[in-house]
Write a protein that binds this DNA or RNA. Structure first.
Lengths: 253, 253
DNA sequence: GACCAGCTTTCATCCTGTGAAAGTGGGAGT
DNA sequence: ACTCCCACTTTCACAGGATGAAAGCTGGTC
């Protein structure tokens, strides 16, 4: 692994949302010897990617915020999606989320009425949005995910077979759903945004309800909202989906 | 300069808001030989900090967006500031901006009703918000800025003396103003958010108007809004301002 | 007062990043 | 059709920067 790779794994130590970490914790999470972690952390601080707090711990820095906010693919998605999310939240009265693929992770991109903040990671197999994105993943990666289905509630699907059948129906155009498979009391439905893009859908639009019936009732509205987003995403340029990165576990090409 | 430094200057090539750059442009902006730039860019792409587009050019990637969105100091500022900006925009009918220091740059953090997007850089000496932040900068850095005052309109203050006197009144508690000093037809007033923090104010709150009179009339509302933000920022923790980074051109310690 | 954890510094070793130079490929010009 | 040119990519011998074990700090705790 190169120097840069190490530095990135230092940053990735914060990816799960931990607001602040001490040096030792960073070193541990990124599997680096302490002096190495220290050197990297210092360079990151000098740049502004990390900040040192008065108690000696570190947190992600403002420079990272400024740069990250400029990422065109996500910015467009949020800017075009936001008004639609707002309306969908008002018409359904339910928390609304927009989720997308980030490398190999599934993350919340934006939300209205939900407690989940942008950047939160979602379990691929146990959320409706996760299933949508999973359905359109290239075979090899999808199989990777299906190989390790963690039980999160009594209702989580942990058998690859049934889940894969659900994914097939999603690809065929059915809305995705997850009935208390991630958290008890949360029933979600989700549909893809721009499902016919070459790279797969740009995002998944999802609502959460107390009951499955309530969630089902929202499906038409969610589907229409997703179409609206797809529509305003398409015309202004091909730069829709964030390019899938060619990562280590990637496919040929 | 270390490897990391080089990689950061590659990312910084996008800091001015350029949505996409070709390899050659990146190499030029970051003053790196082409093969070096290529190697760094590739590693950044593999991580997700950059993305390669179909035409071969690069843009900031989604991984950067996800990470950056987690930066605690900025997130808190935006989350607590947003409702106040909304209200201020409604009561004044004017575009509202929240700006802060990012390393050595002055950037827009959030806005309502303005065309300036978060991440946009502001000229320190020719905007009201810039003057507020400049006023509270440590002496050495302030002098650095005062030494190079670029003329942007016929009304831009390019003499250090008068500007420095304005900064003194701002430190004394007066609202900052800029009358068409950045762009013709734009008159701004600004006040600090949390001006008594150890590190200087967390941000500057500013409104823009067609006429100076209109801007002046808004001052009390802006000041009250800034107090509201300061108030909700303070209690929940000391993590208010983003730590000023110890950069190359920095002071002792 | 001794111990410990968490952090920082040092330094000899060596591996990784470096960039000049040469190679590739596609598009424009004639 | 041929050539030129530009943007990008690959190669490779070299050098300098990164490495991490070991040894010092510091402040808190028993």
């Amino acid at each position: 692994m190169s120097v840069l790779g190490r530095a990135f794994s230092v940053l990735d130590a914060f990816a799960d949302g931990t607001p602040s970490l001490r040096l030792t914790a960073i070193a541990e999470r990124s599997a680096l010897p302490l002096p190495t972690a220290l050197r990297l952390v210092r360079e990151l601080v000098a740049w502004g990617g990390l900040e040192r707090q008065s108690d000696g711990s570190y947190r992600l820095g403002s420079r990272l915020w400024t740069l990250g906010g400029q990422a065109p693919c996500r910015r467009r998605l949020v800017e075009t999606g936001r008004p639609v999310l707002d309306r969908l939240n008002r018409t359904t009265g339910l928390p609304v989320l927009l989720a997308a693929l980030d490398g190999i992770r599934f993350v919340v991109v934006d939300g209205v009425g939900s407690t989940l903040r942008p950047g939160t990671m979602l379990p691929p197999h146990a959320t409706a949005a996760g299933k949508v994105l999973l359905a359109y993943l290239p075979d090899s990666r999808r199989r990777q995910v299906l190989a390790d289905l963690v039980r999160l509630t009594p209702y989580t699907l942990t058998a690859p077979g049934p889940l894969d059948r659900q994914l097939a129906t999603i690809r065929a155009g059915a809305p995705a759903s997850a009935w208390e498979e991630w958290r008890l009391g949360e029933n979600e439905v989700a549909v893809p945004v721009d499902p016919f893009a070459a790279q797969g859908p740009a995002a998944a639009l999802t609502v959460t309800a107390r009951s499955a019936a309530q969630a089902r009732r929202a499906v038409p509205l969610v589907a229409r909202a997703a179409l609206t987003i797809s529509g305003s995403l398409r015309p202004a340029g091909q730069a829709t989906a964030c390019a899938a990165r060619a990562d280590a576990a990637g496919e040929p090409r």
